[in-house]
């Protein structure tokens, strides 16, 4: 059960000359849930599209279950992949069921299959009753759920989701991921996100994207241990930190310091007081992928 997804040396240069992906290599084991995490424009969507077989790479190789997506095995490889794009292409005047029947039919899934499975899948994803609602009256999150159902119909071995939880509230997101992991048990999932928290909670492997490249890759916990192992304290102040302290980062009204114990926190606050600098708030930060992103790229992750 499950498929390995492998990309080697992927590059994509668009016709205007813009190089969106600059040599990405990644490997996702069978049954894993892998996140491509990074800011907008970092090359996540382009990479996912090349993996899903809907965007031809300028260079590089993609293999799904060992089949070359852009070579001899393309038919077999692409029939194994279900892809949910970021912008759902549903006709807005139709109801959820009608839109699914039309598009799934276009993608080769029979009407009977849609009728038997779509309702169950939507209910599982936490969106019951959506089949009778017109697409134009659905929220962005509901339309995204419909897109995921479209990708799930036909039971793909590999599910590729482009920002699936965008527009969902935290509860709906939790429900969505619980359902996807249940429905795709033993099969492989790749998704893109710009939310480090989501990547950390959901994925078994994370690829941090930055300016068209993979800046770091690994299991979220391993990445955190490797790049941001120590706890941090964030001191919010209207002034820059005193020269006696060495901040890991300083931006947006706060300075961040690595700490090992409570004593370190007290020392930092004391240093501010000694320098006569105001302290508005002190916050203990558990290191996560956001901090990893900063450590490996030197840039803040927006949002």
């Amino acid at each position: 059960m499950g498929c390995t997804v492998e990309a080697v040396g992927l590059r994509k240069v668009y016709r205007a000359g813009f190089e969106a992906v600059k040599g990405v290599s990644l490997r996702v084991g069978a049954g894993e849930t892998a996140s491509l995490m990074g800011p907008n424009g970092s090359g996540k969507t382009t990479t996912l599209q090349m993996i899903a077989g809907v965007l031809r790479p300028t260079a590089g190789v993609v293999r799904v279950c060992g089949y070359d997506v852009w070579g001899d095995g393309w038919e077999r490889a692409r029939s194994l992949v279900g892809f949910a794009p970021q912008d759902p292409p549903f006709p807005r005047s139709l109801t959820g069921l009608e839109a699914l029947e039309v598009l799934a039919g276009l993608f080769g899934v029979g009407r009977a299959g849609v009728r038997s499975d779509a309702g169950m899948l939507l209910e599982e994803l936490g969106f019951p009753g959506l089949l009778g609602v017109r697409v134009s009256r659905m929220s962005g999150g509901q339309r995204r759920a419909l897109t995921i159902v479209l990708a799930l119909l036909g039971e793909p071995e590999v599910l590729v989701l482009d920002e699936p939880s965008s527009g969902l509230d935290p509860r709906a997101r939790e429900r969505l991921w619980g359902s996807i992991s249940k429905l795709m048990r033993g099969r492989t999932v790749l998704f893109s996100t710009h939310d480090p928290g989501e990547a950390e909670e959901v994925s078994t492997a994370t690829f941090i994207f930055h300016r068209g490249r993979v800046a770091a890759a690994g299991r979220p916990k391993e990445l955190i241990e490797r790049y941001a192992p120590r706890a941090r304290v964030r001191v919010w102040s209207s002034s820059p930190p005193p020269p006696s302290l060495r901040a890991r980062r300083s931006s947006g009204g706060f300075a961040e310091f690595e700490v090992e114990s409570e004593r370190d926190v007290a020392a930092i606050v004391a240093a501010y007081a000694e320098a006569g600098l105001p302290v508005e708030r002190v916050e203990l930060v558990r290191p996560g992928l956001r901090e990893v992103f900063f450590e490996v790229t030197g840039e803040e992750l927006e949002g």
């Binding site: 809907v54 965007l55 692409r78 276009l106």
Partner: peptide, 16 residues
């Protein structure tokens, strides 16, 4: 709306 891209990338999509 991206449908053409997905179809073009599917075996049999162009015929569909």
């Amino acid at each position: 709306d991206g449908t053409l891209k997905i179809l073009a990338g599917s075996p049999g999509g162009a015929r569909s």
